[in-house]
């Protein structure tokens, strides 16, 4: 419909005729992902209703009818919500700082965000384990200072999981917010000041609303990623902090219950996709996921 007209305007005339050749280039990656990514996921969905042979929806019934599993699901959401809140609380002021400092400084701050972003999740979780243990760095430090007499229980707690997860997820909050803040025109602030707004009022009533798309994108990204966490809750959480990914791995690796494990995987993907679908009306998902790579 409109595409023909649009492309004619965008593409220089002499290149227009060769346009179709480019299209073929998507075939290798498409075939690759279809075969090795999509087919396994479809096979997983099929397995969740055919293992054992006449399973039907029994695996799903089992998951939704037992309280122990419901608790894991609620727990997963709860940890994801708390991690998102922690990331927002730390990430928003930091993104703001990045957007107001001179270019060279914002570059350095960006590196401080990107370095941990790209470094090993396992190593960072291990580092938190070393810090939070009863004999760990933090407890040693507090004991040596005489602030405490007995080591605090920091590891194998919900708090431990939140600290570790928000540390790992923080860059996913900062990057989308910074991307939006960077584009806010400072003139709006001057206009607000000229109209008599105090700096605080200008910040709250002009800057914050303009930054909301970034906040939304960051929260969405962090929340969705948090739902699927496995390594961090496994190493830092206690028995009561089990998340759905841990339950899935347990069923597959230890119980060899593929039917139930795959059914829970389908539930996890279903929830993730539903959240993304609902929010895709408010934000462009490509912006959310692209922001990590573009800068």
């Amino acid at each position: 419909m409109t595409t023909a007209g649009e492309t004619r305007r965008r593409t220089p005339p002499s290149l227009a005729g060769k346009r179709d050749r480019w299209s073929w280039l998507v075939i290798p990656a498409t075939v690759f992902l279809a075969a090795f990514f999509l087919v396994p996921l479809v096979a997983m969905v099929i397995r969740s209703v055919t293992d054992p042979v006449d399973a039907g929806i029994s695996n799903y019934e089992r998951f939704f009818s037992q309280e122990a599993y419901a608790r894991v699901l609620v727990n997963t959401f709860w940890i994801a919500v708390l991690s998102t809140a922690a990331c927002l609380a730390i990430g928003y002021p930091f993104a703001y700082l990045m957007s107001i400092v001179p270019g060279r400084w914002s570059g350095l701050l960006l590196i401080a965000v990107l370095l941990p972003f790209w470094s090993s999740l396992l190593v960072r979780t291990f580092a938190w384990q070393v810090l939070l243990r009863d004999t760990g760095v933090i407890n040693r430090f507090l004991l040596d200072l005489g602030l405490i007499d007995e080591p605090l229980t920091l590891i194998r707690t919900t708090g431990g999981v939140i600290v570790g997860m928000s540390h790992i997820l923080l860059p996913f909050m900062v990057l989308p917010i910074y991307a939006v803040m960077r584009r806010i025109d400072p003139e709006f602030g001057r206009a607000a000041a000229n109209l008599g707004a105090s700096p605080f009022a200008a910040f709250i009533r002009v800057f914050v609303p303009l930054s909301l798309p970034g906040v939304l994108a960051g929260c969405l990204l962090v929340f969705v990623l948090a739902l699927g966490f496995y390594i961090t809750p496994a190493l830092l959480g206690g028995l009561g902090d089990q998340m759905i990914s841990q339950l899935i791995v347990q069923q597959i690796q230890q119980r060899l219950d593929w039917g139930f494990g795959t059914a829970m995987s389908v539930v996890l993907v279903g929830i993730t996709l539903a959240i993304l679908f609902i929010s895709s009306r408010a934000i462009r998902l490509q912006d959310v996921f692209g922001s990590a790579v573009e800068d």
């Binding site: 090795f36 996921l41 699927g228 496995y230 899935i248 597959i252 995987s265 996890l268 993907v269």
Partner: peptide, 11 residues
């Protein structure tokens, strides 16, 4: 977008 545990199990 798909949680990595799910990708792992599917594959």
């Amino acid at each position: 977008i798909v949680p990595v545990v799910v990708i792992a199990i599917g594959m």
